[in-house]
């Protein structure tokens, strides 16, 4: 059979999504040998933007049927690369929460570029104060953006990182000629086996230095819901999927509360508002929650959700 051409890029990213692709596991070798033809993927393939000897003037990426992009858009070069990917790829996949919602790096949207550089290049206790660098480096944008704020995205796979089940699912579905692969629009709680009593425990809101109550010898299904234990679990307002197609939510498996790494449940959701309702429903006073933006928009600061404090 003919192989499907794939181009992959990472922008304001950490490489966790690319490691997640590797964690598809043994199937990956067969896919690489028989089904997928990577024409551009900087993490494993030496294809260059300006020709292989770096003499061309225009940035160029080869044409591909499928384009995969991880990371948000933070500087002029990310933007240029993303526009080129959109131009050259028939189907564009946003891989990971940075690409779909800005991810952790979009927390920078709360601060100005001057604040950031003032500390990094002048005030840091180990740094010899210096002028800010400007030569031969792309200027930063005013914010960190999700991909769909810049180009049309055909398929979104959020997650920090996305579970290999969804990555494999999307690839196999595309190989099958289907272009409408979609993760279910449900919350982390829908995949969580813990016991909910739909009432508040006697406790107050607890920060992460408190331990959850559980018996390590017993399964998750014997543990009380962490939100009901007062642990500010973000399950109710977070997109399901971290445990893959079948598994329990990953943070809950480690007996710690969810922090929202799959982003909002659906496009346009308002986790900052919705969570207040979830807290109130189990009897907590949302006003007592510290650092609301840092918890509730930690992974979803793009799309104008996080703004400069100013």
């Amino acid at each position: 059979m003919t192989k499907v051409t794939v181009a992959e890029e990472w922008l304001n990213a950490c490489a966790g999504c690319e490691i997640a692709i590797l964690n598809v596991g043994d199937v990956l070798v067969d896919l690489l040998v028989n089904n997928l033809d990577f024409v551009h993927i900087p993490v494993i393939l030496d294809k260059k933007y300006f020709g292989q000897t770096g003499e061309e003037k225009e940035l160029s990426i080869p044409e591909a049927v499928v384009g995969i992009v991880s990371g948000g858009v933070r500087n002029e070069e990310h933007k240029e690369v993303l526009l080129e990917m959109r131009k050259k790829c028939q189907i564009l996949i946003a891989l990971g929460t940075c690409a779909t919602d800005g991810g952790i790096p979009a927390m920078i949207n709360m601060y100005t570029e001057e604040e950031l550089k003032q500390f990094y290049y002048k005030d840091s206790p180990t740094t010899d104060p210096a002028e800010y660098p400007t030569e031969h480096i792309p200027p930063l944008l005013d914010n960190c953006y999700a991909l769909d704020e810049i180009v049309k995205v055909d398929l979104s796979l959020p997650g920090c990182p996305p579970h290999p089940d969804w990555i494999a699912g999307a690839i196999l579905s595309l190989l099958d000629g289907k272009t409408d692969y979609k993760m279910p629009e449900r919350s982390v709680c829908d995949a969580c086996p813990t016991i909910r009593e739909y009432k508040k425990s006697m406790a107050d809101i607890k920060r992460l230095y408190y331990e959850a109550e559980f018996d390590p010898e017993k399964p998750l299904s014997d543990m009380r819901c962490l939100l009901e234990q007062g642990l500010m679990c973000l399950g109710p307002v977070t997109h399901v999927g971290c445990g893959g197609t079948k598994g329990a939510p990953r943070c809950i498996s480690a007996r710690v509360p969810c922090r929202g790494c799959y982003g909002p449940i659906r496009k346009g959701a308002k986790p900052l508002v919705d969570y207040m309702g979830a807290m109130a429903s189990v009897g907590f006073d949302p006003a007592k929650m510290p650092d609301r933006r840092g918890y509730l928009a930690r992974f979803a600061g793009a799309h104008g959700v996080l703004k400069k404090i100013g």
Binding site: E77, P105, M107, Y111, L116, K117, Y120, S124, I137
Partner: peptide, 11 residues
């Protein structure tokens, strides 16, 4: 050239 600055120390 390292081409970006994410700003963890700030956020």
């Amino acid at each position: 050239h390292v081409l970006s600055l994410r700003g963890f120390e700030q956020f």
